[in-house]
């Protein structure tokens, strides 16, 4: 039983990180209608910044704040200068720009801070003794910390989109930018804000996941996170924050359990198994579990 619980906790923790990144992707999609493929590498860049600040003496929470602020700035600037001008063209243009940013940010991080693996301090107490026992299994504080952050984030995002004026404006811009502009919504600022918020969320994901990662802080840390997060966002429905979180948790837990218990698939086909399940779900719900079906006028 304790092994099962430990695997479950691992799965939920992994899943929570995927969920946070997926939330960032959903925020971008809900505000501007595209997917930011470079979200992971932008988060990596800000995480390196946070790490660097800890090496010059600042505590990690200050580094995390700096990372969040930088993430916001980066997101807003990228949206204004690179994404907005070409958005109207087609999906593919934004995708290529995102691919370019993906390559550039990764290389920039490597350039500024070299590609050696760096141990990353955790925001939560992370010693070997920092856990509390649950039915024989150990629940570590830093894992619990990540879960709480996800809960706080989903509450925050939900509140933002459904209960605040800003959220209403964001939804309006995503739905029909022209009408929104005619109604007095400052569309430009809203778009920047959307990407900026996603930047903060992404940075948070980076700072949270790196201390728990096998490769700590290295140039390859965020790529698989992005893959799983994209799958989670799509699985849950690109315009649904709740879906993103459910998707992320589902993928994390599925992966942990399949790897642990299904030996035939387990050790060698974890990503395949998780993605196959998602594909099957998409076959029955083509816009994701919680996504809204699109109505198109001809």
């Amino acid at each position: 039983m304790d092994i099962f619980l430990e695997r479950l906790f691992d799965g939920v923790t992994n899943g929570a990180v995927y969920a946070i990144m997926a939330l960032a992707l959903v925020v971008v999609f809900r505000s501007t209608g595209t997917i930011n493929f470079a979200q992971g590498e932008m988060a990596l860049f800000t995480t390196y910044l946070a790490w660097w600040l800890t090496t010059v003496g600042l505590p990690i929470w200050a580094g995390a704040l700096a990372a969040g602020a930088t993430g916001f700035l980066l997101g807003a600037v990228v949206e204004r200068t690179l994404i907005r001008p070409i958005r109207r063209r087609n999906d593919m243009a934004s995708l290529i720009v995102a691919l370019g940013l993906f390559t550039a940010f990764n290389a920039l991080a490597g350039l500024l801070w070299n590609s050696e693996t760096k141990p990353m301090p955790s925001l939560f107490p992370a010693g070997l003794e920092d856990f509390f026992p649950v039915a024989g299994a150990r629940l570590y504080w830093d894992a619990l910390g990540v879960w709480l952050v996800v809960l706080a984030l989903i509450a925050g995002v939900f509140f933002l989109f459904n209960r605040t004026r800003l959220g209403l404006q964001m939804r309006a811009v995503a739905d029909n930018a022209e009408s929104a502009a005619l109604s007095g919504v400052p569309t430009g600022r809203i778009l920047m804000l959307g990407w900026g918020l996603a930047g903060i969320v992404g940075s948070l994901a980076g700072v949270l996941v790196t201390p728990l990662s096998a490769t700590q802080l290295s140039l390859t840390t965020m790529f698989p996170i992005l893959i799983y997060a994209s799958a989670a966002a799509l699985f849950g429905g690109l315009d649904s924050p709740v879906g993103a979180v459910v998707g992320g948790l589902a993928i994390g837990v599925l992966e942990a359990l399949i790897t642990g218990y299904v030996e035939f698939i387990g050790g060698t086909l974890p990503q395949t198994a998780a993605l196959v399940v998602i594909v099957l779900i998409l076959l029955f719900r083509p816009t994701g579990l919680f996504g809204t079906r699109q109505l198109e006028r001809l």
Binding site: D10, T259, G266, G267
Partner: peptide, 16 residues
């Protein structure tokens, strides 16, 4: 013997 694909799963299996 356990695969290292998921070190946590490997650790719990091998501990047992």
């Amino acid at each position: 013997e356990a695969p290292l694909t998921d070190p946590n799963a490997a650790a719990t299996t091998l501990k047992a």
